[in-house]
Amino acid sequence: MHDASTLAMRPIPAAAGIGLRAPHLQRVLAERPRVPWFEMHSENFFGAGGAIHAALERVRADYPLSLHGVGLSLGSADALDGEHLATLRDLVRRYQPGLVSDHICWGAVGGVHLNDLLPLPFTVEALDLMVSRVQQVQDALGREFLVENVSSYLTFEHADMSEWEFVAELVRRAGCGLLLDVNNVYVNSINHGFDAHAYLRAMPRAAVREIHLAGFTRKEALDVPLLIDSHSRPVDAAVWDLYAEALALLGPLPTLIEWDQDLPELEVLQAEAGRAEALLDARRARAA
């Protein structure tokens, strides 16, 4: 077992990594493919030990690692789950990931967890709560935490600001990093009819640490378009365009290909990462 004190934090490079899911784990350990970094879901390692930790130690030894949570439920009116936060803190201490993140969402109320990334109302009350929660997490972890914008399939009647104002203000006030999911920006721009370009331009550029890319599906037979952030398909052409625009605004950044449902062979994810890498290269060439 690695001693956390001897495990140096490896920064995540401004290159295209892959979300590593259980079905690909053994192949990655056996073949050590050329992938610049991996991201894994924090909650998969919430057990105390076992094969999954042994695997993570080997991944961590060979690749820069990002830990991405889905279960912290930052925006719940309920208090933060102290045990969840303590487990995350121990995990971060043990593996010293280059980045650690969760979502701008809520997932539980009255102690009942819905285990999903649920939309917040863009109100001052929700913003104040998110700011204090992110500060609580950064204090507990003793390091910068990233928050990610989520896809949503509804908005609420009452709002004090736009989604992009909410995200930018949260990051500014909490002093945290931003994980900008470009696919989620596009999905929401269609679902809620806003200008994705204006959203990108409103992001706090200096605080963006990572970009996510994934594929969506289109819900059929509805009166209005509704895109679902399914992580089940290649990145859409419109999202590649928006990604190139984000790189032009923000410069080259660590970029992750996410795929969860109908997971294909690792090569398909590597090809998607290759497309992102080509856009990163083009951006680096322009910067040089």
Partner: peptide, 30 residues
């Protein structure tokens, strides 16, 4: 609604315990 009230209404709706929370949701064509 207060945030807690909105989240309770949402949870009730998605757990089949009543649609009162739907009144805070913007339909926007649906």
């Amino acid at each position: 609604p207060a945030l807690r009230e909105l989240q309770r209404g949402f949870a009730d709706a998605v757990l089949g315990r009543g649609d009162a929370g739907a009144r805070w949701v913007a339909g926007a064509g649906l």
